[in-house]
């Protein structure tokens, strides 16, 4: 019977209003699971469109993602999802979708550690690690760009629009003829990414930073087709919100 107790009680319908400036540990964990479950379900459906002999892998992954969303035996579902993640790494000889697969595995590992860590201290360490890695993902991305001359001059973004392998529509490729606009865009992205960690020092600042970051991923999804980055990165945001309230909020 206990298997069914947390079936829909944990669906997280109260998360939306509670997201504000303080999110407690349990809520943050559950919200991360729900968001990651949606992201994995979406990925699995996309995989199934073209899957061959490995179809069963993605059918199981889809089923597990749904179980994760509804909160059924989350700890063991996470372990199984991690095993499937490793099988996918073997199948594709690395990540299928680059960074989005990597952060998906990072979230999975951290959530598994949270569920199986022996004490609350180590659970919080594992979840805090996820938050720090997510924050660093923005900072390092900005750092790599800002030390690159091509990015500082705006040429890198111009080249991305002009002839990159990303599936950009022909009308958007026309943006490459607006170097001043791309220069501004490049510096906006670099400065935002570099300054992202500072948002931890302010409740409101963090909310604004996360909204901007989500909008950034949303734009990348629309323009460059990077839809998986949008969904999975948002799944890591509750950990940052929790870390901020855990470390920087004294009240």
């Amino acid at each position: 019977m206990s298997l069914f107790l947390n079936f829909d009680l944990n669906l997280g319908l109260n998360f939306g209003l509670n997201l504000g400036l303080n999110i407690d540990f349990i809520e943050a964990i559950r919200l991360t699971e729900v968001l990651m479950g949606f992201a994995f379900a979406q990925q699995s459906l996309e995989y199934l469109k073209f899957a061959g002999r490995e179809r069963i892998l993605f059918v199981v992954r889809l089923a597990l993602a749904i179980l994760l969303v509804i909160g059924f035996q989350s700890a063991w579902v996470l372990v199984l999802l991690l095993l499937i993640g490793l099988a996918m790494l073997h199948r594709f000889q690395g990540p299928y979708n680059g960074g989005s697969d990597r952060i998906g595995l990072l979230i999975l590992c951290c959530l598994c550690l949270v569920h199986f860590a022996p004490t609350q201290y180590w659970k919080e360490v594992a979840f805090g690690y996820l938050a720090l890695q997510t924050i660093l993902s923005y900072f390092m991305s900005g750092w790599v760009k800002i030390v690159n001359t091509e990015w500082r001059t705006g040429r890198a973004l111009c080249d991305v629009f002009q002839f990159s392998a990303y599936p950009i529509s022909e009308s958007l490729r026309g943006c490459s003829s607006s170097p001043r606009l791309l220069f501004l865009m490049a510096w906006s992205v670099m400065l935002f990414e570099m300054l992202f960690p500072l948002s931890l020092f302010s409740d409101v600042g963090l909310i604004i930073a996360l909204i901007i970051a989500a909008s950034f991923h949303f734009t990348n999804a629309c323009v460059f087709g990077l839809n998986r980055f949008f969904l999975i990165w948002i799944a890591a945001y509750p950990s940052i919100l929790w870390l901020q309230s855990r470390v920087f909020t004294t009240s």
Binding site: Q42, G98, A165, F218, G225, N227
Partner: peptide
Amino acid sequence: MLRRIFWNPEWNESLFLVSCAERL
């Protein structure tokens, strides 16, 4: 364009092909 957020399997296949090319 909004549809791409939730359903874009062809483009993700293209991105994987780019990864394969880079790996080669």
